[in-house]
């Protein structure tokens, strides 16, 4: 057993967990933050993406102990109170989700993509950057649209809008 302490969605948490506890299980089971999902067991699908110290990571591929001392943001912590993050709002406006299962990971990845490219995105870049996130419902069409729209809203410029 190991004691882990981290900041999750702005709140400091400290718990004793099994050494082998994955961060995703720590979030889902120990903190009851069930918005982060598990869609595979090979680190491929991206349903579990959260932000660790501001960067997107797959929470199924890191131990809770490795995240000791870090700051984690999950989908539950993305909105500013009642006000949705622009990408959350864009997913709704552009119908970027259907069953909703991949959505938290998609949004957390999307926020990271927009951040890393400082909003300077085109469709091709978004599609390649989404390599690590699988959606079975949407065909990605509206996810790409939502990310481009949010990037434009957040940074004012998008080189080439999706159809």
């Amino acid at each position: 057993m190991v004691t882990v302490t981290m900041t999750v969605n702005g709140r400091q948490v400290s718990k004793e967990v099994e050494d082998r506890r994955l961060l995703v299980d720590f979030l889902r089971e120990d903190l009851e933050l069930t918005g982060t999902h598990v869609g595979c067991d090979t680190s491929q699908c991206g349903a579990c993406v959260v932000h660790l110290d501001g960067k997107a990571i797959k929470s199924c591929t890191i131990l809770a102990a490795q995240a000791d001392g870090t700051s984690i943001t999950t989908i539950e912590g993305l909105a500013d109170g009642a006000e949705l993050h622009p990408l959350q709002a864009a997913f709704k406006e552009h119908h970027g989700l259907q069953c909703g299962y991949c959505t938290p990971g998609m949004i957390m990845s999307g926020v990271d993509i927009i951040r890393r490219h400082e909003g300077q995105l085109d469709e091709d870049t978004v599609r390649h950057e989404l390599e690590g996130n699988i959606c079975r419902c949407t065909g990605y069409h509206n996810i790409v649209k939502a990310i481009l729209a949010a990037a434009q809203e957040m940074h004012g410029e998008v080189r080439q809008a999706a159809e």
């Binding site: 889902r28 069930t34 918005g35 959350q88 997913f91 119908h95 909703g100």
Partner: peptide, 19 residues
């Protein structure tokens, strides 16, 4: 019309069986 159900999914409040 934008979907009524979206809010819970985009904020991590969907309730699936494993939840």
């Amino acid at each position: 019309v934008a979907r009524k159900e979206d809010k819970r999914f985009i904020t991590g409040k969907g309730r699936y069986v494993d939840d």
